[in-house]
Simulated scan of single mutants.
Amino acid sequence: MATPDFVLDLRKKIGTDPLPLVGVTAVVFRDEKVLLGKRADNGSWQPVSGIVDPGEEPADAAVRECLEEAGVVVRAERLALVHQIPRIVYANGDQVDYLDLVFRCSWVSGDPHPADGELTDVGFYDLGQMIDVAPEHVRKIALAVAEDDPATFRGGR
């Protein structure tokens, strides 16, 4: 799924002005491997991510995004990181401020595959194979590795 309908409806009202949205990142582990996908829009490798729908629980959104984008069923285990992503300005001028909630998830079933066109490649990779993963995503994965660490928060001044 591309841009959610509720975001398109809001854009009709506010144009390209900054829009605050809640996003989720699902760091999914299967044995000693992590689920990574190559994004169709920019070619970057990263964990599955997406936007929380209105009224949706964020952990449920992380689980839903994994099924929609990668064709895998997962269980959200814990919140690993809460942080504000620097403002993104898309090619069409739309501005978005994402509050990103990063969840540690465990694989339940399904073989990963590009399920909805948002990813061109997806699979489970050894943690040492993350050479093409940007540092901000490596940090998310590192914070999700521990099974029971408390969530990390930026700021808090």
Results as ranks from 00 to 15, higher is better:
Val73Gln: 14
Asp100Asn: 15
Ile141Ser: 05
Val108Tyr: 09
Thr16Lys: 12
Val73Asp: 15
Pro86Phe: 03
Tyr125Gln: 07
Pro150Gly: 11
Ser44Trp: 14
Tyr125Thr: 02
Gly23Ala: 11
Lys13Thr: 13
Pro54Trp: 05
Arg104Val: 04
Phe153His: 02
Gly37Ile: 09
Leu99Gly: 02
Ala76Ser: 06
Val96Trp: 00
Met130Trp: 12
Leu8Val: 08
Asp116Lys: 08
Glu118Pro: 01
Leu101Lys: 07
Gly55Thr: 04
Ala80Thr: 03
Leu35Lys: 08
Pro20Met: 08
Asp111Lys: 15
Lys12Arg: 14
Gly155Trp: 04
Leu8Met: 11
Val74Arg: 03
Ser44Arg: 15
Ala61Ser: 10
Ala59Phe: 08
Asp41Glu: 13
Asp41Ser: 13
Ala62Ile: 03
Val24Ile: 13
Asp17Ile: 01
Leu35Met: 07
Leu10Glu: 14
Ala26Leu: 04
Gly155Asp: 00
Leu101Arg: 00
Phe103Asn: 02
Pro114Tyr: 06
Asp100Leu: 11
Glu65Cys: 07
Ser109Leu: 07
Ala115Trp: 10
Phe29Thr: 08
Asn42Thr: 05
Arg87Tyr: 01
Trp45Ala: 11
Gly156Ile: 07
Ile131Pro: 00
Gly71Leu: 03
Val22Pro: 01
Gly37Met: 09
Val133Cys: 06
Asp94Arg: 04
Val7Arg: 04
Arg104Leu: 01
Asp31Phe: 05
Gly117Trp: 01
Leu81Met: 11
Ala146His: 13
Thr152Trp: 13
Ile141His: 05
Thr25Tyr: 03
His113Glu: 11
Lys38Val: 14
Leu8Gly: 04
Val74Met: 09
Gly93Cys: 06
Arg154His: 10
His137Lys: 15
Pro18Arg: 10
Ala151Ile: 02
Thr152Leu: 09
Thr16Asp: 13
Asp149Ile: 02
Leu119Gly: 07
Ala70Glu: 06
Pro4Trp: 03
Asp121Leu: 08
Gly43Ser: 11
Ile131Val: 09
Ala144His: 00
Gly128Phe: 13
Trp45Cys: 10
Val138Gln: 12
Ala91Leu: 06
Leu79Ala: 01
Leu119Lys: 00
Ala80Pro: 00
Cys66Ser: 06
Val28Ser: 01
Ile141Met: 03
Leu127Tyr: 00
Val89Thr: 15
Asp17Gly: 07
Val122Ala: 09
Gly128Met: 12
Val52Phe: 02
His83Lys: 10
Ile141Gly: 00
Leu119Ser: 03
Ala40Met: 04
Ala62Glu: 07
Val73Met: 11
Arg75Glu: 12
Ala134His: 15
Ala76Asp: 03
Pro4Gly: 00
Leu81Lys: 12
Gly15Asn: 06
Pro114Cys: 10
Val89Asn: 06
Glu65Asn: 10
Val73Pro: 07
Phe29Glu: 00
Pro114Thr: 09
Arg78Glu: 01
Val102Ala: 07
Ala142Asn: 14
Gln46Arg: 14
Glu65His: 09
Leu21Thr: 02
Leu101Trp: 07
Leu81Trp: 09
Pro18Met: 05
Val102Phe: 00
Thr152Met: 10
Val108Ala: 03
Met1Cys: 07
Ala115Ile: 11
Ala115Lys: 14
Ala91Arg: 12
Gln95Leu: 04
Ala115Arg: 15
Asn92Trp: 04
Ala134Asp: 15
